[in-house]
Write a protein that binds this DNA or RNA. Sequence first.
DNA 1: TTAAAAAAGGGGGAAAATCCCCTATTTAAA
DNA 2: TTTAAATAGGGGATTTTCCCCCTTTTTTAA
Lengths: 213, 213
Amino acid sequence: MKAHKIVIVEDHVLLSQAIASLVNSFEDFNVLYTCKNGKELLTKLKTFDNIPEIILMDVNMPILNGIETTEIIKKEYPKINVIALSVEENDITIIKMLKAGAKGYLLKDVEKDILELALKETIKNGYYHTKDVSNILINSLNDDNSTKIQLKKREIEFIKYSCSELTYKQIAEKMFLSPKTIDGYRDNLFQKLNIKNRIGLVLYAIKNGIYKL
Amino acid sequence: MKAHKIVIVEDHVLLSQAIASLVNSFEDFNVLYTCKNGKELLTKLKTFDNIPEIILMDVNMPILNGIETTEIIKKEYPKINVIALSVEENDITIIKMLKAGAKGYLLKDVEKDILELALKETIKNGYYHTKDVSNILINSLNDDNSTKIQLKKREIEFIKYSCSELTYKQIAEKMFLSPKTIDGYRDNLFQKLNIKNRIGLVLYAIKNGIYKL
DNA sequence: TTAAAAAAGGGGGAAAATCCCCTATTTAAA
DNA sequence: TTTAAATAGGGGATTTTCCCCCTTTTTTAA
């Protein structure tokens, strides 16, 4: 029986090689190669004829992150199944990843047996979800929180600037707006995100990946 | 030839098992067991007679972190060599870990060959350092930045509260201090840490692990 | 195509944060 | 034991933040 072909995308090389070693130890699975980020993955997919059946993809990566990469993969290689592999327990990130087309989402604190199961199930059924992730999905469909809070481009730009030592006056200058307009953005966001002050905004931005440390 | 005995401490189970798989694939090395945090490690060391030669230790872990755990290990099991394994590139963290007694510090984005080399060198010489870490060490000895910024207990407490939506007045209440004292703490920290406002303080706290998201 | 909603811009005033100056205990170190 | 930090508190001025209210322009949808 021919082993199923896996590719791993993960920015920390040691982890990526360690996961490769683990996957190679499973029966019927074989790691073709590993990549440091989405860009490297796309290059390698174009270069090599050997197309993987499953891509194990980290979510937080430099250059081209898991969500963006998965979207591209789904368009250009719709037959490849992407399984997300992340430490990120943030609901919004998980939902974004699944919307992008991931067929599974594994937290990095699962047992290796779960990884093996996820690989097998994905080959067999085309998808696999742990209970945790299923629950998040169900909750997110009920509360429409995940879809409700839609931030505008200009708001996101403002939030990013807010995660710095700039005063609002300075942010206004950077964005070519009057300080009073900036006041409006802020007040609006405070209400929308249910926060009390700029600290809350910074924490929100970091937790939701708008601002990266 | 008997294989050298390794123990892995890492909060993300899948990564810990993946690294175990990798280490087991090296000649002359064998993973005894893996632990989810420092507390579990200490329990297992007491329970099992089989004492490892090297502990591969993650730095950021819940319950008992890598730095605290390493300090305890150095006291109770001085013969065990600890190698830190982390994504954390923060100078202060690295120095803290080495001060705690780690014999090496590997970033998680090194090649697996480097891990193997680090294990071999540590068995042979009792230590191993990559160039990156050596450079950080040298710089830290020249600039006395790393040692200079010593935060006091009460300051750290204040910083943690600052990473919330509480006003300074509310923080003062929580800490049973006058708002004016809080003013002093803040002004002092701003100067000491070379930051301009509370946002800077929050970012500093997060980057230096004082406040965990 | 027209009404409604969203986005962009702004004003006034109160509250909070920031800055710069200062003093008195208490504790730790030389 | 004396000196130096660390801890706690303060006055007063300035800036920034925050809150509530408003208008104009641009999109979106009926």
